[in-house]
Structures are given as structure tokens and as C-alpha cells.
């Protein structure tokens, strides 16, 4: 996924300023930076979620497989660029099974056997199958927070996206659930392009191949995660990751 000259606004507020970055295929890229630096806005631009906000505006190109996603139908874009949010948001009135199947049904899959197969496959990829296989018809809200988040990941994976965007996916979870989500990201990056926004420096260091540091809407530094966390080039990156500001 390639981002070129990307700008974003909320009304008069210029939230992203001329972002140029190449997010490599089948790798995890972490987006770090202090609150309000534009991290979430950035990933919301990658699946055209940003433009759904009132007074929001985007300019620039986001290319996926040489196609600018801003020339495509937003619904199609969101099918190939899935998103997982900070707070687990399963559909509260639906069962575990239906939460994962809903995107498939909307995509036109009706055959029950195919639905079952795809739901199982997605739950397995999200490392949740073994915990829920005997209670697929129970409400999703009966699951723990960590399980609900993995259910949301399964829901995103069910429609077979190319890119998975994760906006602080573990910030509302306990340490054990956080570890499971991190392990899951480690596995998912073998098959998907993962972009993860996180406030947790150690989490970025653990799971991301590359890391991008944003500050006041600008991309300050982008490089190998090991380099960013051992010898960053820009002093602002150093100050942020060492906790001297932000």
C-alpha cells in the first residue's frame, strides 16, 4: 500500500500534512506518536473512513495494487482494507457465529456449509476457534473483552481483506489478552499487510517490522522498528520514544 502526498482536514484543522509512505505487503507497520498527532486519522484515510466524519476532507493518493482507493467505491475499499478498533465492538444482538458471518452474508454468500467453513476458518485465524467452537450460537457479548476483540478480528478477516488496520486494538485489554492479540498480529502479518496504531512503545517494538513516528500531522521518521527503537535519526523521535515528551 502506497501513500502519496496525503493531506487530511477536519474542517479548517489540517490534521495530516503531506504524508508519503510505502506500507510493505505482508508486514506489520506500527504507527506511533502522541495523542492528536494524526495516527488514527492516517489509518482512517487508508480505508476511506475519514471522509465519513463531518467536515472531513482528504487530498492525495492511497494506492493499493496500483489502484487509487479514492477512485473506487468506498464499500469495496473497506472490504479489502479491514479495520479493528480500540474498543471491541461486536454486534450486541448477534451470536458469535453471526458476528463473523454478517460480512459474508452481505457479500452474497448464502450457502450454510460455505458460511460455516469461512466462519470456522476466520475464528481459527483469530486464535478464537478452540474457545468458542462449542458455543457459536451464544451472544457475542457473553465473551470476555479479549475474546470480543479477537472476534472483531475474525469478523474483519472473514471477508478476506488484503490489509488489516488496527487502531490501538489492545489498549482496552488486560495483559494476557494483549499478549494474545500481539501473538495473533505476529501470525497475521505472514498473510496480511497489517497497520497498527499503538500508544504502547513496547508493543510496537515487539510486533512491528517497520515503525512510523507521527508528530503534529507530519511523518517525522519511518524505518525498521529495531533502528527506530535503538538509534532513531530524528531527535524528536528519540524524545518521544524515550518519554521526554508526548
Amino acid at each position: 500500500m502506497s501513500v502519496q502526498n496525503l493531506h487530511a482536514w477536519y474542517g479548517a484543522q489540517h490534521t495530516l500534512k503531506d504524508i508519503n509512505i510505502h506500507l510493505e505487503e505482508k508486514m506489520a507497520t506500527a504507527i506511533i506518536g502522541p495523542s492528536g498527532c494524526g495516527k488514527s486519522t492516517f489509518i482512517r484515510c487508508l480505508n476511506r473512513m475519514h471522509e465519513t466524519a463531518p467536515y472531513a476532507k482528504v487530498q492525495g493518493q492511497v494506492k493499493l495494487a496500483d489502484q487509487d482507493i479514492y477512485s473506487l467505491d468506498p464499500v469495496d475499499v473497506r472490504r479489502v482494507v479491514g479495520m479493528v478498533f480500540q474498543k471491541p465492538n461486536p454486534f450486541p444482538t448477534m451470536s458469535i457465529f453471526d458476528n463473523v458471518a454478517v460480512g459474508l452474508r452481505l457479500g452474497g454468500i448464502r450457502r450454510q456449509s460455505e458460511l460455516r467453513e469461512r466462519v470456522e476458518q476466520s475464528l481459527q485465524m483469530a486464535a478464537l476457534w478452540d474457545e468458542v467452537k462449542d458455543r457459536l450460537n451464544k451472544p457475542a457479548t457473553a465473551l470476555s473483552g479479549g475474546q470480543q476483540q479477537r472476534l472483531c478480528i475474525a469478523r474483519a478477516l472473514a471477508v478476506e481483506p488484503d490489509v488489516l488496520l488496527m487502531d490501538e486494538p489492545a489498549s482496552a485489554l488486560d495483559p494476557i489478552s494483549t499478549m494474545r492479540v500481539e501473538e495473533l498480529v505476529q501470525q497475521l502479518k505472514n498473510d496480511y499487510t497489517v497497520v497498527i496504531v499503538t500508544h504502547n512503545m513496547q508493543q510496537a517494538a515487539r510486533i512491528a517490522d517497520k515503525t512510523a513516528f507521527f508528530l503534529q500531522g507530519e511523518l517525522i521518521e519511518f524505518g525498521e522498528t529495531t533502528t527506530i527503537f535503538t538509534k532513531p535519526v530524528d531527535s524528536r523521535t528519540e524524545d518521544y520514544i524515550t518519554g521526554r515528551f508526548g
Binding site: M201, Q202, A205, F229, T230, K231, P232, T237, E238, I241, T242
Partner: peptide, 9 residues
């Protein structure tokens, strides 16, 4: 303190 960068070095 989970040090990184210069602090870690």
C-alpha cells in the same frame, strides 16, 4: 523503565 534508544544504549 523499558528504556529505548540512547537510554537503552
Amino acid at each position: 523503565q523499558q528504556p529505548v534508544a540512547t537510554d537503552l544504549r
